[in-house]
Design a protein around this nucleic acid. Sequence first.
DNA 1: CTGTTAGCGCCTTCAT
DNA 2: ATGAAGGCGCTAACAG
Lengths: 346, 346
Amino acid sequence: MTAKHGGTKITINYVAEKAGVSKTTVSRFLNGRFEMISADTRERIASVVEELDYRPNRIAQSLKSRSSRTIGCLVSDIGSPFSSILVKGISSVLNEQGYRLILADSEDNPVNERNAIDSFLESQVDGLIVNSTGANDRFLLQLRDNGLPVVFADRCLSIPGEIDTVETNNTEMTCSCMQYLSRMGYTKVGFFANGIGKNTTRMARLSGYLKTMEEVFGYDGRDTVYEYVSHGDGSGCADKILKFITTYSQERVALFAVNGVAMLDILNALQKMKLQAGADVGVCGFDNWGWADLIPPGITTIAQDSFAVGAEAAKIILDRLSGEGDPACRKIVLPSKLEVRGSTVR
Amino acid sequence: MTAKHGGTKITINYVAEKAGVSKTTVSRFLNGRFEMISADTRERIASVVEELDYRPNRIAQSLKSRSSRTIGCLVSDIGSPFSSILVKGISSVLNEQGYRLILADSEDNPVNERNAIDSFLESQVDGLIVNSTGANDRFLLQLRDNGLPVVFADRCLSIPGEIDTVETNNTEMTCSCMQYLSRMGYTKVGFFANGIGKNTTRMARLSGYLKTMEEVFGYDGRDTVYEYVSHGDGSGCADKILKFITTYSQERVALFAVNGVAMLDILNALQKMKLQAGADVGVCGFDNWGWADLIPPGITTIAQDSFAVGAEAAKIILDRLSGEGDPACRKIVLPSKLEVRGSTVR
DNA sequence: CTGTTAGCGCCTTCAT
DNA sequence: ATGAAGGCGCTAACAG
């Protein structure tokens, strides 16, 4: 609802009338083409705009210009710290450039995801930043091929093809982390994931894990991959942890969390089982959401810069829109940081 | 970018042409007015729409209908778990009703906030859900008076006036929490806030605190209110904690965190000072973000249902838009929950 | 049942 | 330096 004045909607027409000029002139004024306007009329328009508190209708502008200056952003769960900070990064860059952000939460559901994409398209978004479930990748690729800038953030394409991507060095960092665990004397590492499915981020971490298990630990890691359903309280993974620990009671074992959710689950489960991270079993994994230092003996985590992931994704979109930068497909891999704490020491 | 076909933008006109009918008929078809269409043409249009993968342009629809079916949501920090879950609640309700969500992050800055609101207005949003900084409340009230539905979420109006509001029972719960601390034998409680300013939520909690300090603890709480600047690592409040504790070394003292950020700061500071929550000093406060149970001896927290706050705010907006429900100004106060753990015991 | 016409608010040639 | 006219894609009278 734009400001009103005695019941009349304030449009460019109304401003023109009040200022005694044509709407063409007002339009020029609004778009800063001052060279074509006399100082006199320019001032007159300015004062009318000011007085009426006129706000141009972006909807009408968009219809005419065929550009909404709006980016659609689709995340799998806006409630998770990772996603929300990712969105903050996106928002920060877009806002700076006068772009608007439409947000949708797929809840990791392919149907919701598809609906959200359709809605974005109908809204005439100028670009798409996606935390894809993987199920609609063919469709997304096709949209990109039709000319719509699409960037994958914290996900890569789950099918053959090329698309702009920004993500963390998932595989490499998982390898590094595993190597670190090996150096610390652990002989078996359990990989705990609240589902893997088509989630390429989790798959990338899994692949780094499997590789290092084979090459460094010298065993087939598939035996120690534990998928479970998270209930947010550790109940989903407790039995799997127990099984892992008892199966390898003769070894030095550690638990690896594929992400922050799994990490919380593991810690909750250990607490219920009266097991101490560090002393009884090694614990480490992805995502430092602010409390890793506070849970004794300090939890070894891999911290990601999700703000940067979002910011870079937004920058790519804007580059694509302006035609700037290398037109070749971009794959940005951002570093993460292994933060060693007590839970993987001795 | 809507789907293309040999370079032609697919519009309602194009569909009409292909189907050999007028665009009016196609429009009727799209809007489900099937009574006015013969089964034959109806089928013809359906197949053309399907074949062309036609998507109506919501921009054009909005221009015509003067309704964008879009709600603007302004939060102070989308990166915080409180806000992001709030947004999830909003998104969930809006999505269900086919409304879109434009998001902006004010970073608690009044200028950013004002710009975001202006941008929302230009985008012709049908309503506004705001996590107000307080600095633009007069403006927001005026917008509402001009007919734009505006709902305050997790904030109330900082100036005289009435506006739809959804928030947690901040004052009452803070009182309850203080009374609980009194019963537990604490005699002094420090109120720690990462800034209060015009933030009405923090002010409400402060007022509950001051009231109970006077009525139950029997002292002027203003002496034990500590405002500081958060750096995310506790460094901002460590000296204030130290001062509080040493000043009242003869008393049984507890620290109260005004929100989750302050809570993390306090815990980090205590850790650095080698002080134990619970044993050395009582600790409790707002926001349970999943780890309260895991930090020994368990941190007593006040858990808010921020999803519900968002969902209720969105429902009010939709009610206002549809004219349903009580037209009187609504003040929804949602319950929160005091979760007692070891940090306030003995 | 279907089409014609006009117009939402704005921008953009093309004249003047 | 300024304006008139047309059109972006869609909906809604108003006619038939």
